[in-house]
Design a protein around this nucleic acid. Structure first.
Lengths: 165, 165
DNA sequence: ATCAAGTTTCTTGATATCGAGTATCTCGAT
DNA sequence: ATCGAGATACTCGATATCAAGAAACTTGAT
């Protein structure tokens, strides 16, 4: 089946036959799919009164394991936002009672963000819902195809995740 | 090579061995890669004094072909933003002299957004830069792998792009 | 002709994000 | 001991986004 990127690439080949737009076949699809996923996630989380950004922070803490705490800096590398954004997110989650801020005992510059019991429950509930939704989206592919797709994507993400990025 | 999603999935398997988190292998990589690409694009465009959102609108008009005009509604489906956002974007691009608003002759509710000559030049310059950057990112994959990756992604984007979405 | 339903774009208010700069602290070298 | 470079989280102002609803218009049915 055709998608919007097929149309986009065809249009460029018509308008700019001098350019090789092959890269768009992959990377425009990645960007557009991510936006579609954002919308779908927003909808799925609204049942749990959670915003996508709240989910991202809470689950980062959740999968760190007991006692469910990370530094703001560690949260940055997981969520790919700036430090100003993370400060703001922690403030708002604290006000909602889903996380709390603790001083880092080993570094007085540092702070530890800890999940509250309610925050943990909310994260667990929302995760189950998200996985169900994502499974439905991925039903377009066989198990083997999903594995292949994951492996190909890893080759593109790894350089960003490992080098300073 | 390992990436952040490998670590994320391993953490979930440790913390929630009862859940099947396989969907994350694909979709978390898509979301994270898109964020990395956003950052990279922002950097690449700053040489041309363009923001990513400006590029998206200008190139949508550019590849529509002469006379380089589309309705705000058509721009919505290409850029996946809300109508309020698009109104605001058109306002700002108009102020910068890169697009202009014309009344739609066949529908008095409607508006046509047209690229100015300067807008067209800016779009063309920035596109060349973007393609160079994307080619570098995709050098991790062979030509055949890129084709495979594009085909697999198409299966996921097509339902969003064709059904109402 | 008129009306109801649907469309197209715009307005508005709340909110989230970024970037740049700042204050505090750590740590290794001297 | 002290200094300077680097790390860490935060502040602040500017800006972009979204959601919901309003305004203007079209279209098809009566």
């Amino acid at each position: 089946m055709e998608d919007e990127v097929d149309r986009l690439v065809a249009a460029w080949r018509r308008e700019r036959p001098d350019l090789d737009v092959e890269p768009l076949e992959v990377l425009s699809r990645v960007s557009r799919l991510a936006r579609h996923l954002d919308r779908a996630r927003r909808l799925a989380f609204s049942e749990h009164q959670l915003e996508p950004w709240e989910f991202d922070v809470l689950t980062s803490l959740r999968r760190a394991g007991a006692p469910y705490q990370l530094s703001p800096g560690q949260l940055l590398t997981q969520t790919l936002v700036t430090s100003g954004t993370m400060t703001n997110r922690i403030d708002r989650l604290t006000k909602k009672g889903l996380v709390e801020r603790l001083p880092d005992p080993s570094d007085r510059r540092g702070v530890l963000v800890r999940l509250t019991p309610e925050g943990r429950d909310r994260a667990d509930e929302a995760l189950a819902g998200l996985l169900a939704q994502e499974r439905a989206i991925l039903a377009q592919l066989s198990r083997a195809q999903r594995g292949e797709l994951a492996a190909l994507l890893r080759r593109l993400t790894a350089p960003f995740d490992n080098i300073p990025g």
